[in-house]
Design a protein around this nucleic acid. Structure first.
Length: 271
DNA sequence: ATGCGGACCTGTTAGC
DNA sequence: TGCTAACAGGTCCGCA
């Protein structure tokens, strides 16, 4: 589920329920996520108090007074706030219980997600220190993309999905942003004009910001049984629509694979 | 340095 | 209807 808007929605959904709360206990039922969950995580977290819930790229950073829990949701992870009486589902791998009775429950069928415990400087963690800028930050600009892309031969879609270039642009939004900007996904990153990159940057920012807003409408659901963020409802112009007519010109959308990811575009509107 | 393919997993869907 | 294969929203790593 999680692209950046879903991670941000999750952050906003869980933050009010855990800020200022003290951890009363941690249960790890399945350690083998993408990287092993630290075996001492329960002792690290026990009795520490949540001071902030931040996000860097698609990592959630639960900052406590003794260290930071870094969570990635991978392809299929989700976090929900549940009561102590909430029945366990399959793939509920980790519970973090707080004084007062609420539980932050991590669920992840494919186990591509991860949990790390960080003490010291969070930004210098190996998984964070080489990341590109946040897409919604001012430093992510057409000037930046132009400068970085010269001499790059990779397809522009692959380029903007590279977390060293910019974080948080997953497969769905890469497809959608390239459609909005009128850029063919397979075109060499280094051959895209500054004008086109300006359109692309605007498209990425707009789409992500919109998706976060839409996700925001489902925040209340984080307390209930339905933790599904709302991006499915969002109208997608190309993703998942291969062979169907382009919403602009009616031409059937093409579907190809780039870097083993499904890529959909309009051969007429995107050049 | 860059770019590509493989790897990690389970659940759902498409196709025979 | 039932079995099998292909595919799915991420991203790190190793190799060319």
């Amino acid at each position: 589920m999680p692209e950046l808007p879903e991670v941000e929605t999750t952050r906003r959904g869980i933050a009010p329920h855990i800020l200022g709360k003290k951890v009363s206990g941690v249960v790890v039922r399945e350690r083998s996520l993408r990287w092993p969950v630290p075996s001492r995580l329960p002792s690290f977290l026990k009795d520490s108090t949540v001071r902030a819930v931040n996000r860097r790229a698609k990592y959630l950073l639960v900052e406590t007074d003794t260290g930071t829990l870094m969570i990635h949701l991978g392809m299929s992870g989700s976090l929900r706030i549940v009561g102590a009486d909430q029945a366990l589902r399959k793939h509920d791998h980790v519970d973090i219980a707080f004084a007062g009775g609420s539980i932050l429950r991590y669920h992840d069928p494919r186990r591509f997600g991860s949990m790390h415990w960080i003490t010291g400087d969070v930004a210098s963690h190996p998984l964070l220190c080489d990341l590109g800028p946040e897409p919604l930050a001012g430093e992510f600009s057409s000037d930046y993309l132009v400068a970085l892309s010269r001499k790059r031969k990779a397809p522009v879609k692959t380029f903007i999905m590279d977390s060293h270039v910019v974080v948080g642009v997953g497969n769905i939004y890469a497809n959608e942003a390239l459609f909005r900007a009128g850029i063919r996904p397979a075109k060499e990153a280094g051959k895209i004009s500054a004008e086109k990159y300006a359109l692309l940057v605007d498209a990425i920012k707009e789409i992500l910001a919109q998706a976060i807003e839409v996700g925001g409408t489902t925040l209340r659901d984080f307390l209930g049984s339905d933790g599904e963020p709302g991006y499915f409802k969002q109208s997608l112009a190309v993703y998942g629509r291969g062979g169907e007519p382009c919403i602009t010109c009616g031409t059937p959308l093409k579907e190809i694979r780039l870097g083993q990811r499904s890529t959909v575009y309009c051969g007429r509107c995107q050049r």
